[in-house]
Design a binder for these strands. Structure first.
Length: 512
DNA sequence: TTCCGACAGTGGGGTCGCAAT
DNA sequence: ATTGCGACCCCACTATCGGAA
């Protein structure tokens, strides 16, 4: 199959907003694909490279190359070239990758170049990625979409399911079961604004502490232990403590879901930055582990001794977890019967925060484990802090925000009346707000840049954030974590804005 | 008919490892 | 030695479609 055909379909998919039409276009293409093209066509249309990320970003892509006049590239040829490119390493590798990318782009037509650019940078922007590819695949093969989706979640891979399905038909789906040693996409949580809201929505529930670490899925099969992240990246080699802990447990074959986090000598959790830095260390794990030891803390079990527990209610899965994993290695939790019991849940949240954790996750007791889904039966609750800050500048948006001032530079008031930048945010804005702020900030602009405008510091905006973290980028030495716009405060003047001192008073642990 | 779940998009900041300078 | 880049960890929130209620 020619790459040009993929580029054409991607363009057509992007041009329609109807999901059913997107699915139909993808299904048509999957039907056309030869068997040998499938392992490439499927991930490409889901906006992914079979090789994963291959060390090509904006810098390596370099300057635009004149496009070819006629399409000649096949998808398999492109895949073979990218496999070679991914294997390049050592001194001079960046130049060699740049050369190979240039060669590839030179062989591509304008339409193909546009598609390849999106693929390589991870910005396909066709409004249809995994879910649409799953639907299209189901439609192309006559398999029920729900069965295909479930197989993909359990295989942790669209590609493997696609190959089996196109080669053998819908019967192949039965093969994709939960298997110890093969990572499963983890269940994710929605957000609730308060424990009361979460309990009201779920009724009978478990309230579990939410640790601010790295999600980890642990598979043990006899002496073999594998650990993977939320995106199914294998990090076994970086977590010797977790491997050892899993081997100590009284079970030979199981799959556990939890969080890996580092506790200080005082027993309190270290900051996310410290835990993430440790888990990110690959070159000298032993030294990193001595400085920042990590512990696994589990909250779910997906399989034990060959029994698949995914469809069991939380209560039953937790009973299995309690049999397998000792208390100190499980998250703390309380059971709440319903809204009449909300005080217990609120007290538990307060205790959890006092112990230095992030918040809680409220889970419906009857809910199964929905692999790969953001199930409505898991609701996280974290306290939200707010500050009134001043807009110092704004950056032009991209994609659907092109032409709108989007990303705001946020400043707190300093003692001398100047403003200290604390970070940026593009979150929390409706389209109407984007339009309004583009006009308003345009009036306040004092300087235009290629990236946006700097403005007179007059506009006050209420910002929500989850906490502060250390920063070398900003002058106060800290920045806001997950800052988002709540509302503009046109009733406030910049001299009413919050100060750096206010910030440090609210977060004394972050003060210099 | 209205409501709501799921998904894609729009990016934020930090840290590590590797290559370039 | 330092800097720049890419990958990947954490993540919030809005718009939209289409099935559920």
């Amino acid at each position: 199959m020619l790459l040009a055909r993929l580029a054409q379909v991607s363009r057509e998919v992007a041009a329609t907003s109807a999901r059913s039409r997107k699915t139909a276009l993808l299904a048509e293409l999957f039907r056309e694909a030869e068997a040998a093209d499938v392992p490439v066509v499927i991930p490409y249309l889901a906006g992914r490279l079979p090789q994963g990320r291959i060390g090509v970003g904006w810098k390596v892509l370099g300057r635009p190359v004149p496009p070819a006049a006629a399409p000649t590239l096949t998808v398999r040829e492109v895949d073979a070239r990218l496999t070679r490119l991914a294997a390049v390493s050592g001194p001079g590798s960046q130049a060699e990758r740049t050369r190979l990318v240039g060669e590839l782009m030179g062989a591509a037509t304008e339409d193909e170049q546009r598609f390849l650019l999106g693929l390589l940078t991870g910005e396909v922007r066709q409004g249809a990625l995994d879910a649409a590819a799953v639907e299209g695949l189901a439609s192309a093969t006559g398999a029920p979409a729900a069965d295909v989706r479930r197989a993909v979640m359990l295989a942790g891979s669209l590609q493997a399911v696609a190959e089996a399905l196109l080669a053998e038909g819908p019967d192949a789906l039965g093969r994709f079961r939960l298997t110890v040693g093969r990572p499963v996409l983890p269940m994710l949580a929605h957000t609730a604004s308060s424990v009361a809201e979460a309990v009201a929505r779920l009724g009978s529930c478990a309230v579990e502490e939410k640790l601010d670490g790295i999600r980890v899925q642990v598979h043990r099969d006899g002496a073999t232990v594998r650990c993977c992240t939320r995106t199914l990246e294998d990090i076994t080699d970086r977590l010797p403590e977790v491997t050892a802990a899993a081997r100590e447990l009284p079970g030979e074959r199981f799959v556990l879901d939890g969080e890996v986090i580092s506790f200080g000598a005082d027993g309190r959790p270290r900051s996310f930055q410290e835990t993430a830095g440790r888990v990110g260390s690959r070159t000298d794990v032993a030294t990193a582990a001595r400085a920042v030891p990590v512990s696994p803390v589990f909250f779910d079990v997906l399989s034990v001794d060959g029994r698949d527990l995914l469809d069991l209610p939380l209560t039953e899965r937790h009973a299995e977890l309690a049999r397998l994993v000792p208390g100190p290695m499980r998250v703390r939790r309380v059971l709440v019967a319903g809204p009449e019991d909300v005080r217990a849940a609120e007290d538990f949240l307060a205790e959890t925060l006092a112990r230095g954790h992030e918040g809680v996750v409220v889970k419906g007791t009857d809910a199964p484990y929905s692999a790969g889904r953001r199930g409505a039966s898991w609701l996280k609750v974290k306290p939200v802090h707010t500050l009134d800050l001043v807009v110092l500048a704004a950056e032009w948006g991209h994609g659907r925000r092109t032409g709108k001032l989007s990303n705001l530079h946020l400043g707190a008031r300093a003692a001398d009346g100047s403003f200290v930048m604390l970070g940026k945010t593009f979150k929390g804005m409706t389209d109407a707000l984007l339009t309004w702020q583009t006009a308003r900030l345009g009036e306040l602009a004092v300087e235009e840049h290629p990236w946006g405008v700097t403005v007179r510091p007059e506009l006050v905006v209420e910002i929500g954030y989850d906490g502060v973290q250390r920063s070398t980028r900003y002058p106060a030495g800290v920045t806001l974590r997950f800052a988002r716009v709540i509302r503009y405060r046109e009733d406030k003047r910049p001299e009413d804005a919050d100060t750096v001192e206010t910030l440090f008073a609210a977060h004394p642990e972050a003060a210099p």
